[in-house]
Design a binder for these strands. Sequence first.
RNA 1: GCGCCCGUAGCUCAGCUGGAUAGAGCGCCGGGCUUCGAACCCGUAGGCCGCAGGUUCGAAUCCUGCCGGGCGCGCCA
Length: 558
Amino acid sequence: MKENLNILIKNTLDYCIKEGLLKETTPPNYVVEVPASREHGHLATNLAMMLASSQKRAPRDIAKIIVDNFRDPERFLEKIEIAGPGFINFTISSVEWLKGLKNIIDLDKGYGAAAKRDESVLVEYVSANPTGPLHLGHGRGAALGDTICRILEFRGYEVSREFYINDAGVQIRLLGESVYARWKQIKEPDYPFPEKGYHGDYVIDLAKEIEKEADLSTMDKEAAIITCSEIGKAKMLTELKKDLEQFRVSFDTWFNESDLFKNGLVDKALNEMKEKGKLYEKDGALWISTSGYGDDKDRVIKKQDGQYTYFASDIAYHMDKYRRGFKRALNIWGADHHGYINRVQSALKTNGVSGKWLSVLLIQLVKLWKEGEEIRMSKRAGQYVTMKDLLEEVNVDAARFVFLTKSSDSPLDFDIDMVTKNDNENPVYYVQYAHARICSIFRKAEAEGVDVLPDTDINLLKMLTLEEEIDLIRTLDGFPELLDSICDSFEPHRIVYFLTDLAARFHRYFNLGIKDAENRIITSDVNLSKARLALVAGVRIVLRNGLDLMGVSAPEKM
RNA sequence: GCGCCCGUAGCUCAGCUGGAUAGAGCGCCGGGCUUCGAACCCGUAGGCCGCAGGUUCGAAUCCUGCCGGGCGCGCCA
């Protein structure tokens, strides 16, 4: 609707200028938006106020010119009013809203989707080290990344989901040493455990499993540790994939850091930078001069001991991403990585890649609450709640919904008790209940012999005359725009608030029928019933499509 | 010390590129089911939007400076 109105506004503006009613000017940055109050119509624009300075006239005078000359040949609008300091308020003809509803029902699962566009996005998320189980922070990143990908795809972007496996550095080695030590301890309980090793019980489980698969006792220590590293990593990855799959999160590409070295991509990246004169040696180490590109200081890329730093492989990785031809890249990182953003972007700029090509979405920490107390997580002590633990207690729908409820800028308190409850304290049920309720209405209608999928012709829909009914359609109409705003802002929490608001409007509408039988959806008037069923069918479509984009189920009964 | 994020109702948080009277959930108090699902709805109370300036027709939103909280600033990974 907004788009349609925008066209009319633009035509009117052009007309007024052509007729000399307004001075020629570059179009101001005005907005068309849904006003907060219903008294202000369906849509409103601040155009006249934005024009005031260039026209050197009072906003209300300009508004009057626009309103008096409004170009609306198809009678799209029912009413135009000037209000307040110079807002122009539009009331759209109710037939237009009914057409909008019909469109939603016709498109069904495709409502909210956009045509394929020539824009590819690489989204990297989770990227947990395969040295331990997924924790709640990873869960938040997984829910967020997955939902962003689903929405981008729905809006026509070509999306590739990627998980980067840090498998080339010392932490995999440390995993091997930890597993090896646990294996030794089966026979020699006093065998020393590496100081910085991984203390979690899962390491003991790994040691037991590896013993079944490989005869470590016939190997020398080094070979045994390498075996432990390799098998340990493979097993941890299997676990990660399993947990993620259960969480309805999948990836197109599992990218091994070690492949960057194997395929010579790190050397290649370094050589290119060397040729461009971006590298230099100092104090026996190799440095990259990122400081000219927005970084605070230059960074070491190869240490005195000849080992590459992580930065080296990260540069190679991001250059590889770029060369694979993606138009944009998005990384989803924990907030503790924020110091790294500037560094990576600077490195990209050093290589001639625009800093805007890579966006980074930071997510704040997750705190876990149980029985009114915070459960502090400590990796060193091997004490933390894993995704696996969580999913044993909490269903996937509830977990994903809660992870998505808050802005990623805000730390998340995850209250296990609330999310475990099967009552109205659990926020996911509010939206799901609305969906199930509509399904129930349809079952009832079917039982009463009402044609449940009428061919939604506009004349039938004209039975919808209640204010609440048009309001519902208006909300449904905002769905595609909501999705677009999420694609631009990477703020998927907005969909939660949108769906909660839609569910609230539906519940309120439904409850009108408790007070007054005339307002029930299935009434004694068959045509009215059909029209109202079409309306709630539209609500059901948006609830279902929206929940689907969140990776949350839309149950027919609950 | 420098950088990023946050500060909105008793609690947890929304508030979309600046818009009209700042909202929701939970909690408190009070109401609503003989017929479509009460996992629902309606109503009351509750706010110097951290503080102080600035930008303009207009600021919770943008700018500056403070205050308070979180995180990050390695030849760690």
